[in-house]
């Protein structure tokens, strides 16, 4: 493959290809390949191979009987993909996932930025608060889900008791379908620490002279924020935007722990918490519809790639890299 690419298409002088190949006479080359070998094997057997297999499986009836060898694996054509568009549960799971992501990403970014900006102006005392705000991030998701169930319990939970103190009748967060996702969003925003630390680091990288120059020009605090802070930290904003979006699309553990019992039929699980990754998991490893689940995985992959590409394209207009484009 490589030989075709270099000797066949390279328009440069022939010596370039020869030089490329002469590299294989060097000991350094073979040492490098030996160092890379574990990753390359993993790439073949745990990434590239499974990807091809997954694409193949998505066009077959592969399931529990095929694993056991009772029935042959047969092609079903594009049936799974057509089913994706006709399945109510898929539509529901996609809607849940999008709604959750659309709430969670902006909420996390805004809270993280506000906290980071306050921290960046209190000097030395910032350290202890940075630690405190980071701590929820080290809470295992399963533990966070348990905390969600107990603290947001509609009758006895601490959250509603606290709301009562200020005269608000809190909703039944964990049972009312319209409050299940908002409470999961609040849980996500609680572990805002990582995003905040990224913003804090970016804010410290903004040259102080820019603010001074803007102040001399009479720029208001809002103008300084909009025209200095935001452009200067836009790479960090962009990075977290993409990472948080992908995390939102793949949300699994908290909602699964809180609302989906192992071995339960799912009949008692609320529809409002059925995220795409949860439905995919159930199709694959509870119902063993591995062919259909593979098609689901590819749909998620295509959605993720499309959204990321849109984000990259749109943000190209807004993201400012200090020292030129990378």
């Amino acid at each position: 493959m490589a030989s075709v690419a270099t000797s066949g298409t390279a328009p440069g002088p022939p010596s370039r290809a020869r030089r490329w190949f002469s590299g294989f006479r060097e000991r350094e080359t073979w040492t490098a390949y030996a160092f890379l070998a574990p990753w390359f094997l993993g790439f073949i057997f745990l990434t590239a191979g499974p990807m091809i297999a997954s694409a193949y499986l998505s066009f077959t009836n592969y399931g529990i009987e095929q694993i056991a060898g009772f029935s042959p694996t047969e092609s079903v054509g594009t049936e799974h993909y057509r089913q994706l568009f006709n399945d109510d549960k898929i539509r529901l799971a996609l809607k849940n996932t999008f709604v959750f992501t659309l709430m969670m990403v902006p909420a996390t970014m805004v809270v993280a930025l506000v906290l980071a900006m306050i921290l960046s102006r209190i000097g030395r005392a910032a350290g202890i608060f940075r630690t405190i705000f980071y701590i929820p991030q080290i809470t295992p998701p399963v533990a966070a889900a348990v905390l969600l169930l107990v603290l947001f319990n509609g009758q006895v939970g601490l959250v509603n008791r606290a709301l009562e103190l200020v005269g608000i009748q809190g909703p039944f967060w964990t049972t009312d379908p319209s409050w299940i996702k908002p409470s999961l969003v609040i849980l996500s925003v609680w572990s805002v620490g990582g995003t905040m630390v990224i913003y804090l680091a970016a804010l410290h990288g903004v040259p102080q002279q820019l603010y001074e120059a803007a102040a001399i020009d009479g720029a208001s605090a809002w103008r300084r924020f909009r025209d200095v802070t935001i452009p200067m930290i836009s790479p960090a904003l962009f990075f977290t935007f993409i990472i948080l979006t992908l995390a939102g699309l793949n949300s699994f553990t908290e909602a699964y722990t809180a609302y989906f019992g192992a071995g339960s039929t799912g009949a008692d699980s609320p529809d409002a918490a059925l995220f795409y990754a949860i439905y995919l998991f159930r199709q694959a490893f509870e119902f063993f519809n591995l062919g259909f689940a593979s098609a689901m995985a590819w749909l998620l992959f295509l959605i993720s790639i499309t959204i990321t590409l849109i984000q990259v394209t749109v943000s190209r207009r807004f993201v400012f890299y200090q020292g030129g484009q990378k």
Partner: peptide, 11 residues
């Protein structure tokens, strides 16, 4: 960039 679900089942 690859989401884990794509390789999950074959793995």
């Amino acid at each position: 960039m690859l989401p884990p679900q794509v390789t999950l089942i074959p793995t």
